[in-house]
Simulated scan of single mutants.
Amino acid sequence: MEKAVVLLSGGLDSCTCMAVAKSKGYDVYPISFNYHQRHSIELEGAKKIAAFYGVKRHLIIETNMDAIGGSALTDKKIEVPEGDTHRTDVPDTYVPARNLIFLSYAVGYAEVLGASHVYIGVNSVDYSGYPDCRPEFIQRFQELSDYATTATAVKGKHITIETPLQNLSKAEIVKLGVKLGAPYEFTHSCYKGGEKACGVCDSCKLRLEGFREAGVEDPIAYETRDI
């Protein structure tokens, strides 16, 4: 059975990615990150999702991205802004170079495992304008990865970066996950990190809109569901 590494944050998109990779028949190896994020509660969701799929190993990497700061998710001096699904600027919830760092870890892990695929739930339709979610970024990272690993440069094997959600709306992502039986009840998407999702940050608003447009009831608890 071919192996696939899945970046599993514990949120809606990464959970859907996990479901997609499983549906393709891969032996999945989820990797999560404790980067000292404000919403570290999502890691509990990631653990539950990994357990749901009965994985052999769930790797959790600790990296102190709060030492760099510069994001509302890692710097307590910066407030999480109220969500605006129509914003054109990059919000303060952007974590500098996060996906670049996470993908680098994931590709290294894939090389050690002998995995041929790395799944990441980046999306360029219903997202907050993060530069490291664009298809151009993934394309260039793929090219860089091909030069950076012995798997490709020496052994002639290819580690493919898979982005199955890249061109899907949030509603389409929800529909796909429901079809594949993704355990959305374990997911946590809120940037504020409370026991209940706030319902007003970017992530919550995008999620709620997606479920509403998909005609599906969101199974997690919210402080407010007004969008």
Results as ranks from 00 to 15, higher is better:
4 A>N: 04
10 G>T: 08
10 G>V: 05
12 L>D: 00
13 D>T: 03
19 A>Q: 00
22 K>A: 14
23 S>T: 03
28 V>R: 01
30 P>I: 04
33 F>W: 07
36 H>D: 15
41 I>F: 04
43 L>Y: 08
44 E>H: 13
48 K>F: 06
49 I>N: 01
60 I>T: 15
65 M>V: 11
70 G>W: 08
76 K>F: 13
79 E>F: 05
85 T>S: 10
85 T>C: 10
86 H>K: 15
92 D>P: 08
92 D>G: 10
92 D>V: 12
93 T>M: 12
94 Y>W: 13
95 V>P: 07
98 R>G: 07
99 N>K: 05
103 L>M: 14
104 S>R: 11
106 A>P: 01
109 Y>F: 11
113 L>T: 09
115 A>T: 05
117 H>E: 14
121 G>F: 00
126 D>G: 03
128 S>D: 09
135 P>I: 06
142 Q>H: 10
143 E>F: 08
147 Y>T: 13
150 T>A: 13
156 G>P: 01
159 I>C: 06
162 E>Y: 05
165 L>V: 10
175 K>T: 10
181 G>Q: 02
184 Y>E: 00
185 E>Y: 04
188 H>I: 02
195 E>N: 10
195 E>H: 11
201 C>T: 04
208 L>Y: 03
215 G>P: 09
217 E>I: 11
225 R>T: 15
227 I>S: 07
